[in-house]
Amino acid sequence: MISGAQLKALAKRNIWDENQVLRQILGICSMLAVTNLLSNSLVMGIGLIFTVSLSSWTISLLRQWIPHRVRMIVQTLIIASYVIFFDIIIKANLPEISRSLGPYVGLIITNCIIMGRAEAFAQSNPPLLSLLDGFFAGVGYTVVLVAVAFIRELLGFGTIFGFNVNFLALETWTLMVMPPAAFFIIGVFIWILNIRSQGKVSGGGRNG
């Protein structure tokens, strides 16, 4: 079984130390595409958490039987199956969100994070651990996704989850609505993170 300390370490590593977006620079495509609205980002994040956890779990379960030379094809097949499954479920139960997410759900298949976790972790670790690894990697992605979406929706539309908070009727910032805005925001995030980790490495003092 997995101990609490192990779980905590796994969570910390996947959400903070090796954050998929800010540290590994993976999943940037969807980060640019869906983050201008919080609701879309949240559903996208949930979809990714679901897909990456279950595909990591499945790949880990089958890891002894998957032939090495076709492993990537098999991984893609498993990932695609879960994504299509998720797509059908939200089409049936959340038609409105499905309409606004449009093709992005299908594009979860190509999200590098999922295959990254499959290659880097699931194929050499036990199922439950792989599931949790995928889950926390997905949470790490979703946290950044929602943080970026919060800034973009607030500045681009003056709303939060669709509720108008632009009480002073300030002019909204069109650039924030467009994909490049995510580049600037993620860039600033990475910058802040780098400054923090630099401080740690050099013992807290830049001149020391």
């Binding site: 039987w65 998957i66 032939p67 090495h68 030379r69 076709v70 094809i73 098999v74 097949l77």
Partner: peptide
């Protein structure tokens, strides 16, 4: 496990 036949059948 790394033979052609196995790969095909498995996939």
């Amino acid at each position: 496990k790394d033979g052609h036949l196995y790969s095909i059948v498995f996939t």
